[in-house]
C-alpha cells in the first residue's frame, strides 16, 4: 500500500467511531501493536523529547525501504506513534520525504501535532522526514558514485 492508501484506510477505520472515548480505545489498542524499539536503542540519541511524554524512534533500511520501531512512556502517545509508523514503515525514503500527511487532521487529532501539545509527536514526524531525507541523499550520492 502507498502512504496515501494507508492514510485513507486509517481515516476510514476511525470514521466508524462516534465518540472520543471510542477513538482513544482504538488508539490505545494500536499502541499495543507498535513494533517496539530494541532496548539497546533506547538511548538519548534516539529520544524525541516532549515536555510531558517521551518517544524513542529507530529506523533501519531493508531492501530500499525504511522500517521504523519506537516506544513511548505514555500509552496514548504510543498509540499515536503507532499510527504514524503504520503509515510510514515499509516505504521508500523518497516517498516518505515527499509524503503529505493529512490523516491526523482527518481523524480529528490535529491538536496532537501542535507545538504546544508537547507530546513529541510533531518532533517525531519531523524526525521521520529527516531520516528519510538523509537516506535519500545517501542513496543519491551512492548512485552518483560520490561519497557522502
Amino acid at each position: 500500500m502507498t502512504i496515501k492508501e494507508k492514510q485513507d484506510e486509517l481515516i476510514s477505520d476511525f470514521s466508524f467511531m462516534e465518540n472520543w472515548m471510542d477513538k482513544y480505545e482504538h488508539i490505545i489498542q494500536l499502541g499495543k501493536e507498535l513494533p517496539l524499539i530494541d532496548e539497546k536503542y533506547k538511548t538519548p540519541d534516539h529520544l524525541i523529547k516532549g515536555c510531558q511524554s517521551q518517544v524513542w524512534l529507530h529506523t533501519d533500511m531493508q531492501d530500499g525501504k525504511l522500517i521504523f520501531t519506537a516506544d513511548s512512556d505514555a500509552v496514548i502517545t504510543k498509540g499515536l506513534v503507532s499510527l504514524m509508523i503504520t503509515v510510514f514503515s515499509g516505504q521508500t525514503p523518497k516517498d516518505i520525504a515527499a509524503a503529505e500527511i493529512y490523516f491526523i487532521d482527518a481523524i480529528g487529532l490535529s491538536n496532537h501535532l501542535s507545538p504546544t501539545r508537547s507530546n513529541g509527536l510533531l518532533s517525531m514526524l519531523k524526525q521521520i522526514k529527516l531520516y528519510a531525507i538523509a537516506y535519500e541523499a545517501k542513496s543519491q550520492s551512492q548512485k552518483n558514485g560520490t561519497e557522502l
Binding site: 472515548m21 482513544y24 510531558q52 511524554s53 505514555a74 500509552v75 496514548i76 502517545t77
Partner: peptide, 21 residues
C-alpha cells in the same frame, strides 16, 4: 504507573479540565 499525560488526555475528552505535568 499510568502516565499523567494519558490520564489528562482521557479526562479532557470527558469534558474535565485538570492539569498534568
Amino acid at each position: 504507573d499510568i502516565h499523567p499525560y494519558d490520564l489528562g488526555e482521557l479526562l479532557d475528552k470527558q469534558g474535565i479540565a485538570i492539569r498534568t505535568g
